[in-house]
Design a protein around this nucleic acid. Sequence first.
DNA 1: ACATTAATTGTGT
DNA 2: ACACAATTAATGT
Length: 209
Amino acid sequence: MNELLKEAYSTIFEPKLIEEIESVATLMDFNEGDHLIEIGQYIRQMPLLINGVIKILREDRTEGELLLYFLEKGDTCAMTLACCLGDTKSEIRAIAETNGTVAMIPITKMEEWLGKYKSWRNFVFSSYNKRLSEMLSAIDNLAFMKMDERLLNYLREKAKVNRSSVIANTHQEIAYELNTSRVVISRLLKALENEGIIKLNRNTIELLK
DNA sequence: ACATTAATTGTGT
DNA sequence: ACACAATTAATGT
């Protein structure tokens, strides 16, 4: 079972650290659609994503959801790091985009490793870094980009994480994640189809370019 | 195989 | 944004 762990992390972590992870981590499988982290929840374990894709959403007080970014194999959630270290509640919601596996690591260990392993420190810092810049581009999207550009961005990201140019989502679901209405999505999608950028089917969208 | 229903998507106001 | 039409998938008979 720990083949997976090695495969995902052996390029980043030194062998000793991987051994330690193996000895303390609990592997947890999740299924598509599972709510991994809810808003307001305390986080006592730190997840390392081994397999699958997780999406990170922010929720508006009025009940709108907004997609922030996707997590892929070898990533961890920066929010979790902040929560663990600062002992605060989660500000975000994490939902499984596909089936997958995470390794859960006790916070005590992760603090211990910070001093002990250089590769771990690097991992934590660069995760922060990466997420920060993803947050910035998410903000850019919101502040400066029109809905049609955001939609196209979304489709591209989604195609990337699923490693497939076919996106299996209804217009309604997309609208939720971009925090807009379904009608807007339908119209924009159709416009994109007319431009020959995508192909529209029921329940699926195929990215052509 | 057919009819009914529900869900998804398209369009006009 | 809303209402409704059109299309397609799901289900029961």
